[in-house]
């Protein structure tokens, strides 16, 4: 059986007042989507940022296996190495496009940036690659020179996906990527993501509070409450047979809507 892309054990980020996340354990494999669900303030985003190295962990271990098969302990990784991994092996899709895109440069430049950071210096090839990625995320290549400010919310999120996936990362973190989108726009985004995960074999860790999103995309789910994982397992098991009082509340509140 293949090795996990990410192995997390005993991970904690302690803000000191009971806030943060604690005792986090899970493994994530290639092609898997893991959703982290829970109410606001449950530590979902803290966990995501800690995993991505944007916050320093206070305890525990996060092991990442890169494309070449070597393993990195992210909690003690030097920042230079972490940034190298962040631009070649990871992606990060934010809820608000303006946090994840450069709004003052064209879509093409947004998509090309990571390639240029990795040393690609052929304008024509960069442009062609960017155009292909726009098409993959269902944006016409005609829009290559338009700025993201001229895009709708759904297009901006798809542009973020293209910007992140262009370097074929192994692992993509997503923080409420469908948060601000209309339902129909959301469906398109989710379907696209589902296909890209299937086609590219990336692993995804997504924070969401939408159990519909979880059901559609994620094989695996973590339910968080007050900084701790109260239930973890296969998504269908958690949604169909939730064990923890909080999971039951979450499932009954949302699915009845």
């Amino acid at each position: 059986m293949s090795q996990p892309v990410l192995s997390v054990s005993g991970l904690a980020k302690d803000y000191g007042n009971g806030q943060g996340c604690f005792d986090i354990d899970f493994e994530l494999y290639e092609g898997e989507v893991l959703c982290i669900v829970g109410e606001s303030g449950s530590g979902k985003s803290t966990l995501l940022s800690t995993l991505a190295g944007r916050l320093s962990a206070d305890a525990g271990s996060v092991r990442f296996r890169d494309r070449a098969g070597s393993s990195h302990e992210l909690t003690t990784l030097a920042e230079a190495e972490r940034r190298r991994l962040a631009r070649s092996e990871w992606g990060f899709v934010t809820q608000h496009a303006r946090d994840g895109l450069r709004m003052n440069v064209s879509a093409g430049a947004n998509v090309s940036e990571r390639l240029m950071a990795l040393g690609q210096r052929h304008y024509g090839q960069l442009r062609e690659t960017a155009a292909q990625w726009l098409e993959k995320v269902e944006i016409s290549r005609e829009r290559l020179d338009d700025r993201p400010t001229a895009f709708s919310g759904g297009m901006q999120q798809r542009l973020q996906i293209a910007r992140n996936l262009v370097t074929q990362p192994r692992l993509v973190f997503m923080d409420e990527p469908t948060g601000g989108l209309d339902v129909s726009v959301q469906a398109r985004f989710l379907d696209l993501l589902r296909r890209l995960v299937h086609d590219t074999g990336i692993a995804v860790i997504m924070v969401t509070h939408d159990l519909g999103v979880t059901r559609l995309l994620a094989q695996r789910t973590l339910v968080m409450q007050q900084g701790r994982v109260v239930e973890a397992g296969l998504t269908d098991q958690i949604l169909d047979d939730p064990q923890h009082p909080y999971s039951q509340l979450l499932v009954s509140s949302i699915l009845q809507a």
Binding site: M1, P4, E27, Y29, E32, Q219, R220, A232, G233, L234
Partner: peptide, 8 residues
């Protein structure tokens, strides 16, 4: 079994 094994 772990979730990954169940999926397999």
């Amino acid at each position: 079994a772990r979730p990954h094994e169940i999926a397999s």
